[in-house]
């Protein structure tokens, strides 16, 4: 009985693993990040999926699924699952590579402010085979309106050799302790692509910008020596300060840690 149970569990696990498809590894987007007003081109490698070796593949795309405050919208090229429209056909680039280009606002027929993210599947025209049982992860559209945040980085996209300025907008702080503290320092850690910290943790005194805003600027690849063969992939930053406890005694306030990706800008 125990053997049967063990075998069944193994079979289920194998089936589950076979159904998995690593969208992140198989898909390349240009540009890498996009607003709903940008033309997006993506290339997908279907090697190792039920679609491997097929020559004619079609896109099934939708937006906003599960996004609070947004309406689910199907792509206008979808047609029916059993009969994809010609407009949904991907360009066969050979070697199981397929490409598709679209403009989100045209694809979903709405203003950019009504689009939060999109997901997709790749399928045959009649839907008899698809790339995976799993939908793609949601790919977020960058906002086209400014959204105030307590922990901001300027500019929004940075490379390792760019000046990064971290800002603390205290009036937007997420905790009462952070709202009341006197901000003193920012603590920054740099990480490589394997999530391993590069070099030591830096703590710097903050510069006052006025109006309850504090900042600090640094250049990652000058502040830290990035080892050969490694890339600076992200940094975390945290604003700390001092406050008072209920007895009026000075206490150290540890702020919220925020993460920021570092891109390969060129």
């Amino acid at each position: 009985m125990r053997k049967i149970f063990f075998l069944s569990a193994m079979l289920l696990a194998v089936q589950f693993l076979q159904a998995q498809f690593d969208y992140k590894a198989a898909t390349v987007f240009q540009p890498k990040t996009f607003t709903a007003e940008d033309e997006i081109t993506f290339t997908i490698n279907v090697t190792g999926t039920p679609l491997e070796g097929k020559t004619d593949l079609y896109l099934w795309i939708w937006s906003n699924e599960g996004a609070a405050g947004y309406t689910l919208i199907n792509g206008i090229t979808n047609g029916a699952w059993g009969a994809s429209l010609p407009e949904a056909k991907l360009t066969n680039k050979g070697n199981n590579l397929f490409e598709y280009k679209f403009l989100p606002t045209s694809m979903f027929g709405v203003e950019p402010g009504k689009l939060k993210h999109f997901q997709f599947l790749i399928k045959t025209i009649d839907g008899s085979a698809k790339i995976s049982d799993q939908n793609s992860p949601p790919y977020l559209f960058e906002p086209i309106v400014f959204i105030p945040v307590p922990f901001r980085v300027f500019p929004n996209r940075i490379g390792a050799s760019d000046v990064a300025t971290v800002y603390f907008h205290q009036d937007l702080a997420p905790t009462v302790a952070e709202q009341r503290m006197t901000p003193k320092t920012v603590t920054v850690k740099l990480y490589d692509e394997t999530n391993t910290q590069i070099g030591d943790t830096k703590t710097w005194n903050l510069k006052t910008e006025g109006n309850k805003v504090w900042s600090y600027s640094f250049i990652p690849d000058i502040t830290w020596t990035i080892p050969a063969g490694k890339t600076a992939n992200k940094f975390t930053f945290r604003f700390d300060g001092t406050g008072k406890d209920i007895n009026g005694k000075d206490v150290v306030v540890t702020g919220t840690t925020t993460e920021k990706n570092i891109d390969a800008l060129q």
Binding site: T35, E142, F146, F154, P155, R157, D162, T165
Partner: peptide, 18 residues
């Protein structure tokens, strides 16, 4: 330093003297 996306969409923080 000029954030071109911020300029395009008229965000409040567009440039910074670094």
């Amino acid at each position: 330093q000029v954030d071109l996306n911020a300029v395009k969409y008229n965000f409040p923080y567009k440039e910074l003297d670094v």
